[in-house]
Design a protein around this nucleic acid. Structure first.
Lengths: 140, 140
DNA sequence: TTAATTGTTATAGTAAGTGTAACATTTTTT
DNA sequence: AAAAAATGTTACACTTACTATAACAATTAA
């Protein structure tokens, strides 16, 4: 029950953009500063464009920039932009087998309730709060 | 961020054992009644043996039986028995790259807090309550 | 028109999960 | 002691998902 590294890569990229908000940065610049492959970054950022978290400009002098203030971007919307799956998900679709019991319904109820908890937690965490935490930690 | 079918298979097997608690059943009998492969069942049930949820007896007249009442078995202990990973887990170990910020620590704090929530939810769900739910549903 | 940039597709490699079979081990029964 | 029946464990093939990267198409500004 593991998740991708897409979330942490996205957060790193967005935090980098947030440091010079609202200035635009190219995928190459972001790559050099985060260590994340530029092609991978473009794929992630294009997803974040579709949900209006960042905006992209093609061509010379193009790049990516945040469309919202760091305090108005939360983890949940980032997660939803880059992942099609729910954050907590079990493959139970095959358990509606030969028996008469509705295991599938039972587990789905449980999992969607867990999902709500996770989304609530993620919604409360903004990019700004992540940056504050990281800066505070780096002062030691 | 998906989980295995191991949990639902285990629950099905345990529910079947619970229906005739505390009588022992062979992996073949469980397989015939649940549609789950007998070899897979033995692997799962041997893990559940190690955490004292079921007990196994080899040899003729052997089989598996519940070691505890269905009301005293909860989802959380089943999950922990069969999965080595935490229920909610992100691969963020590679994000401690070239920068000075402690992203890893930040995400770990978040994820362990989510983990606590999930474990609390699972702990509250007993095999007995699952069976009650399923029986109630099958009356329609 | 050229250069620089994003957007998209393709591909190869790795890791994880799944289902099943085969065989070793243990135990009871005769 | 031998045979039968069961669990315990290992191995393997198959599929699926994830990851990283490259290559090229599309777009834009100078």
């Amino acid at each position: 029950m593991s998740a991708s590294t897409k979330l942490s890569s996205s957060v790193k990229a967005i935090c980098f953009l947030a440091e010079s908000y609202p200035t635009a940065k190219t995928s190459k610049e972001i790559a050099e500063n985060t260590g994340i492959n530029a092609s991978k970054l473009r794929k992630l950022l294009s997803l974040l464009c579709k949900s209006k978290i960042v905006v992209s400009n093609q061509g010379t002098k193009g790049g990516f920039q945040l469309l919202k203030s760091p305090k108005d971007i939360n983890l949940q919307e980032i997660y939803c932009s880059i992942e099609d799956r729910k954050a907590f998900h079990l493959d139970v679709s095959d358990i509606i087998g030969k028996d008469e019991y509705d295991y599938l319904g039972y587990f789905n109820n449980l999992f969607s309730s867990i999902q709500v908890d996770i989304e609530n937690k993620m919604t409360k965490i903004s990019i700004q709060s992540i940056m504050n935490y990281l800066k505070m930690k780096s002062n030691f």
